[in-house]
Simulated assay, not measured.
Amino acid sequence: MIQGLFSGFSETIQQNLGWTPEQATIIAERILKLAEGKLYPVTFQARQIYSRKLNIGKDKIEKILTVYSHELSSVNSNFHIPQDLSQISPENYFQHKPLIRLSKDEYLLTSSSICSPAFYKAIVSELRAKVESKINDKLGDKIEDFIKGEFLRRGIRFNFGKYSGTQKGKVDEIDIVVEASNTLIFFEVKAKPLTRRSRCGSDLNLLFDLSDSLLTSQIQINKHEIYIRKNGSISLKNGSIFELNDRDIAQVSITLLDFGSFQDRTVVFQLLENMLLGKVEASDDVNKVEKLNKKLNDFKLQFNELVQLDPTRAKNPFYNCWFLSVPQLLILLDNVNSSDDLKRELWRTRSITTSSLDFYREYEYARELAAARDST
Rank of each mutant, 00 (worst) to 15 (best):
L72V: 13
F79G: 07
H80F: 15
I81Y: 04
P82D: 02
N92E: 08
F94I: 12
Q95V: 06
Q95I: 05
Q95S: 05
H96V: 10
R101Y: 00
S103C: 02
K104L: 01
Y107V: 08
L108N: 02
L108A: 07
L109K: 00
P117G: 06
A118M: 03
F119R: 07
Y120A: 03
Y120S: 04
S125D: 01
E126C: 09
E126P: 08
A129N: 09
A129E: 10
A129W: 05
K130Q: 08
K130P: 04
I135T: 03
L139E: 11
G140Q: 04
K142Y: 03
I143P: 02
E144I: 14
L152Q: 11
R154W: 10
R157K: 13
N159I: 00
G161T: 12
Y163M: 03
Y163T: 01
G165E: 12
K168M: 03
I174D: 12
I174L: 13
I174C: 09
E179A: 06
E179P: 03
F186V: 09
F186L: 11
E188F: 07
K190A: 11
A191N: 12
S202W: 01
D203C: 10
L207Y: 14
L207S: 15
L207E: 14
F208E: 08
D209I: 04
D209L: 05
L210A: 11
L215T: 01
